[in-house]
Every structure is written in C-alpha cells, then in structure tokens.
Amino acid sequence: MANLKHIRTRIASIKNIQQVTKAMKMVAAAKLRRSQSNMEQARPYARRINGVLKNLLPNIDRSLHPLLAVRGFKKTGFVIFTSDKGQCGSFNTNVIKFAEKAIHEVGKENAELICIGKKGRDYFTKRDYEVVESHTEFWNELNFGHAVEFTASITRRYLVGEYDQIVVIFNEFKNVASQRLVKFNYLPLVVEEDEEVDTTEYLFEPSKEAVVHSLVPRHLTVQMWRFLLESWAANMAAQMTAMDNATTNAGELIGRLELEYNKARQAAITNEILEIVSGAEALMESSK
C-alpha cells in the first residue's frame, strides 16, 4: 500500500534528522567545555588587573587619560554579540530584542552599531540601523587575538571621538540551561570602588600614571576576551539545549509515526484476510 511506504520513508528521514541533531548536541557540548576552561584560565589575569586598577584609579586624575575621562553622552556606540548561525533557540532573538530596546532609549539616530556575529549584523542592517563595523565567521577559531583586534578598533573609534560612550550587549553564560542578558558600560572605563583597598606602598616604575596607562588597554582587552568567551559559551549552551529538544521531539514524532504505521499495517492485513475469506465463501456458495 502506498500509504505504508509513505510512512516508512518519513520515519527513516526523521531518524536521520535525529541523528544529526544528536551529533550537533555533542559537538556543542564539546565546544562548551573548551570555552568554559578558557574562561577559567582567563579569570586570574582579569581579577588581578581589575584589582590593581581599583586600587590605583581613585588616586589618579581621570581627565589625564582619554579612556577614563567622562564626557557628555551624545553619541553611543553599541557592541552587540550574536552568533553566526541559528539552531540555538531564542539565543539571538533575545540579544537583538534587548539591544533594540537599549538603542531606542538613546534614540536610533544617536546610536551606531558594531556587530560581532552574523545574525546581529543581518538583522540590524536590514532595518536601517547604522552598522559601522561587523566581525563575522570567526567564532569557531576564537582566540585571544580576536579580543586584541576588536578592542583596538573599538577604542580607536572612541578616542577619535566618534562616540562618547560605548555599551556592550551580550549573553552571559550562567549555566547550561540559562543565559543572562547583560548591558555593560565599556567606555569610559568604570571600576566599581571596593571597600578593601590594598594599602601596600608600591614603588612605581616608571610612574603611577604610566602603569595605569599601560593597564587600561589591557583591562579593556581582557574584558573583551571575557565577553567573547561568555557569549560563545552561552551560544553553545543554547545550541546544546535546542538540539537536545529537537532530538526528543524527533523521538516523539518517530513514536507517533510508528504507531500510525502499525495501525495501517494491521488494517491492510485485516483487509486482505477479509478479501480471502469472502472470496472463499463465494467459491463455496457457487460450488454447492
């Protein structure tokens, strides 16, 4: 029966899909682990630099360093982190919606966008936002060099005065099941003041100011590195969850189709028996 064959091929093709989603889930899990270990490795460096800056910044005239000076907020640069590919549930939609809201708070005409990741770039260019810079197709080879490159280009834009503040929007990795949307004021640099101040009297070589000046860009780079890692980990976690759901759904669908297939097969057999029996009956009738 045509119907039977039809169901059989559907089951086979869904099984194929299920295999693919299962494999994609595994790949995402492996990438997630790698990026988590990168995050671990980056933490001591980030913590130390942050600590030192916290201690030094209160003693320094902020206006001396262009990356520290607070100017009036007129134009805002938004750095938005999305992924290149879909198949990760509402990961990108969430960031984009969140970013759109933040942009409308300052007004579309006062905002320029730097999109990290293809999904964000495509969305915002299509809707006539001012996308001045985008970086795509690097996530799979993500390394510290990317953080250096992006930071350099973003701080350059800030220094020549294209923007008065830079806001970063990304998905933070909370755990495998959930991400948190974060809006972070990247520039001008703010470091939360801390109660416990390290009172050690240091000898500064060549000078306190020089040390701060060399630390600020490094701090920004390591922050950027954190955004990239967080966003990538969150992306992989979202993909893992999405692919896990897809695999389960495929399983359910296969179950339903198999039931349908068995029913159809039963019906076909019953039909055949009926035909044989009634045929035999008719023969007996006629031979009497």
Binding site: E205, P206, A210
Partner: peptide, 19 residues
C-alpha cells in the same frame, strides 16, 4: 624588560609595580 630597560629581581626586593 621594563619600559625603561632590563631590570633584575632578587629575593627581598622592595614592593614594586613595574610596567
């Protein structure tokens, strides 16, 4: 290598922060 040239550190060095 400091920004002003090479420097050496031996045990008991004074507390310092060097670029």
């Amino acid at each position: 290598p400091s920004t002003n040239g090479l420097f050496g550190v031996l045990p008991g060095h004074v507390d310092a922060m060097i670029a």
